[in-house]
């Protein structure tokens, strides 16, 4: 069994190395187009009122037109994911230019959306966390 384990580990190491050498280590940017496309696919009935696109391309958030819900878009490697939640059900904190959504899931602790400057971040966090509270 130890020999089989060693062979499997060697095989895994080779495949990971080859995929890396072939340029498969990729991180997709959460661009406006990509975020809108992903949210429209995952949550087709989410009526977006306002978008907040992270300056670092790693996250985006949207508030629904009626202000009752928020959606976030995040990147994981070359794939995107989304979460949708009611206002107030997820903690939103600002750390400088970073707005952090505390998701508290094992697979997704937090989603961060980075504003260009602190003034913008303060405006965003008011819209994302404070408007309906």
């Amino acid at each position: 069994m130890l020999i089989e384990l060693a062979v499997s580990l060697a095989g895994i190491a080779i495949l990971i190395a080859v995929s890396w050498l072939l340029g498969a280590m990729k991180s997709v940017a959460v661009t406006e187009e990509a975020a809108q496309d992903r949210l429209a696919f995952d949550e087709p009935d989410f009526d977006v009122g306002e978008w907040f696109f992270g300056a670092d391309g790693k996250g985006a958030a949207a508030v629904s037109a009626d202000g009752s819900e928020t959606a976030v878009v995040f990147a994981n490697g070359d794939g995107l994911g989304t979460r949708r939640f009611r206002h107030g059900s997820v903690g939103v904190e600002r750390h400088g230019t970073i707005i952090e959504f505390r998701m508290r899931e094992p697979s997704l602790r937090a989603v961060r959306v980075v504003a260009t400057d602190e003034t913008t971040a303060e405006q965003w966090v008011l819209s994302l966390a404070g408007a309906r509270l």
Partner: peptide, 11 residues
């Protein structure tokens, strides 16, 4: 499509 970390996780 391939992504190295995804492939590593699968393996």
């Amino acid at each position: 499509r391939y992504e190295t970390r995804d492939t590593a996780a699968s393996l």
